[in-house]
Structure formats: structure tokens, C-alpha cells
Simulated scan of single mutants.
Amino acid sequence: MATHAAVPGRKGARAHARPRSLTPYAVAVPLALGIIYGFYAAFIRRDGGPSTGGQVVLGLVAGAAVAALCFALGRIQRTLPHGPRALACGALTACAVGFLVSLTDTGVLRSALLGLAVGVGVFLATFYLFYSREP
């Protein structure tokens, strides 16, 4: 009587990977973050006076940049290991906070240190989150 050998299957994390489709949530969250960030950047630059065209352009550009970076990070984050994934989240947050602080006409050192402090906090929190929910 002949026996059948077991056929080895594909192993690894990408064995059953399908192309990811673009969900409404994947577009709505970066878009909402970009809109909020852009409004806040324009509001900080306003300084209590009337709105100008330069402030509107600043808000649009800053919001579009944050939305694009959040969308890009959301698309590639599943392919990154825990460390670089958390580092990318921390770096994005550090740059965003540092830019907002620099709009208040404070020194470069203060905006860099505050952005760095917030970025390190986000890195630690996201690394813990990603590492503790490892499959």
C-alpha cells in the first residue's frame, strides 16, 4: 500500500498575504489628521489678527504634508518590524510637534527639544503597544 507524502506548505508571515485594498478608514484617518493639523498650524500663525493668504497656504501645505506622511506610514507599517515601525511613528510625531512649536516664534532649540521629547514618548508607547500585541 502506497502512502502519500505530506506536501510542505509555504511558511512565513507572507504565506497567505493578499494585496491590501484601500479602505475608507485608511483614507479618512490621515485626511482628518491633516485637516486638524492644518487648521491648528494656521491658527497658531494667526496671532489673534485677521487671517491672511499666507496663513491659509501654510495651513494647507502643512495639513497636506501631514496627511500624506500619515497615509504613507499607514500603508507600509505592516511590513516593518516593531522597532522601525515605532521609530517611524515617533519621528513623524516629533517633526509635527517641533514644527508647530516653531510657529510660535520660540527658539529653534526649544522646538527641537520639545519635538524630541514628544517623539521619544511616542516611540516608547508605540513600541510597547506593538511588542505587547505581537501575534
Rank of each mutant, 00 (worst) to 15 (best):
A2Y: 10
T3S: 13
A5T: 11
V7L: 12
P8G: 03
G9V: 04
G9D: 08
G9H: 02
R10V: 01
R10T: 06
A17C: 02
P19C: 08
R20K: 14
S21G: 13
S21Q: 14
L22P: 04
Y25A: 15
Y25P: 00
A26F: 01
A26V: 07
A26E: 12
A26P: 04
A28H: 00
A28W: 05
L31D: 09
A32K: 00
I36M: 14
G38N: 02
A41H: 00
A41M: 03
A42R: 12
A42G: 11
F43N: 12
I44A: 13
R45V: 11
D47H: 15
G49W: 08
P50Q: 15
T52Y: 12
G54L: 09
L60I: 10
L60W: 09
A64I: 09
A65C: 09
V66G: 09
A68H: 08
L69T: 15
F71E: 14
I76S: 09
I76H: 11
I76E: 05
I76L: 10
Q77D: 15
R78T: 11
R78M: 13
T79I: 11
G83I: 14
G83A: 15
P84H: 01
R85K: 14
R85Q: 07
L87I: 12
A88D: 01
A88W: 05
C89A: 15
G90Q: 06
A91V: 15
C95E: 09
A96L: 09
V97Y: 05
F99G: 10
S102D: 11
S102F: 06
S102Q: 11
S102I: 06
L103Q: 05
T104L: 10
T104W: 05
D105I: 01
D105V: 00
D105R: 14
D105P: 03
T106I: 09
G107R: 08
R110W: 05
R110V: 06
S111Y: 07
A112K: 04
L113N: 00
L114E: 02
G115C: 04
V120G: 00
V120H: 05
G121W: 05
G121M: 00
V122I: 03
F123R: 01
L124F: 06
L124R: 06
L124T: 08
A125W: 02
A125Q: 01
T126A: 10
F127C: 00
F127G: 00
Y128Q: 11
F130K: 02
F130D: 00
S132Q: 02
S132C: 03
R133G: 02
E134D: 07
E134H: 12
